[in-house]
């Protein structure tokens, strides 16, 4: 079953009188539980594609269907509610709230969903232990290293058990060793919880972690191939 499927997505920016085509008729679908990488150089349109899939930008044409629901025409509020329940995010620059502790940051998506404080704190603590930050629960982002911050980001993306997790250059701000650790953790978590994970990156090394690599160039899909090396590592999901 397809977790997300986009059809004939086209995105055109109007800059002054000039038309810039960021995406030209892209179609793709990602299956439930699949770990997929969208690979492309800067300016290839991969970020735009991610934004369209996450409802942060409206496509000029085409449709987005997530979990069987056509969300193309959703309003801003509908998207917000939809993201609350169905989508997790991991950002390049972590994007943790600086005034909050690790636990509060992780619990934030649950707070938006209206989960009671005790319950969401419990889930957040559990998730932070899962990313091996059980000893950093009450630290603020400024008191943690980049790798630790990104692990908090991962915990935050997984805590609400969404259908779909987007990771936008998740290792972009990390050194290669920490980057590898973070990627290992992220992929392991996705497999453990059976999440569908879409990683957007320009780095072919990162792409190797994915079971499937879709390459984008100048707003068009140039290749879509499976990566047996990563797929072989696939384990049976825990739950």
């Amino acid at each position: 079953m397809d977790m997300i499927s986009i059809r004939d997505i086209r995105k055109v920016y109007h800059i002054g009188t000039e038309k810039v085509v960021a995406l030209g008729r892209i179609s793709l679908s990602v299956a439930q539980g699949e770990i997929c990488c969208i690979l492309g150089t800067s300016g290839s349109g991969k970020s735009t594609l991610l934004n369209v899939m996450a409802g942060l930008e409206r496509p000029s044409r085409g449709s987005v269907i997530i979990g069987g629901t056509d969300v193309t025409k959703y309003s801003e509020k509908q998207w917000a509610l939809f993201r609350q329940k169905n989508i997790g995010f991991i950002f390049q620059s972590y994007n943790l709230l600086p005034t909050m502790t690790a636990v509060e940051n992780v619990a934030l998506p649950l707070a938006f969903r209206g989960v009671a404080k005790e319950l969401r704190t419990g889930k957040a603590v559990k998730m932070l232990r899962a990313v091996r930050l059980g000893d950093r629960l009450l630290h603020r982002p400024t008191q943690m290293s980049g790798g630790q911050q990104q692990r908090v980001g991962i915990a935050r993306a997984f805590v609400a058990r969404p259908k779909l997790i987007f990771a936008d250059e998740p290792t972009g701000n990390l050194d290669s060793k920490t980057g590898q650790e973070v990627m290992d953790l992220m992929v392991a978590m996705a497999r453990k919880y059976g999440e569908t994970l879409i990683i957007v990156t320009h780095d072919p090394e990162i792409a190797k972690y994915a079971e499937r690599i879709i390459t984008i160039h100048d707003g068009c899909k140039v290749s879509d191939e499976s990566n047996p090396a990563a797929a072989g590592k696939k384990e049976e999901p825990e739950s």
Binding site: A80, L81, F82, R83, Q84, I87, L97, P98, F112
Partner: peptide, 16 residues
């Protein structure tokens, strides 16, 4: 600004 953006992406509805 950034904080507000993060909250929106994480699914905080604008009314909140």
């Amino acid at each position: 600004t950034r904080e507000i953006g993060i909250m929106k992406v994480l699914g905080c509805i604008v009314w909140n």
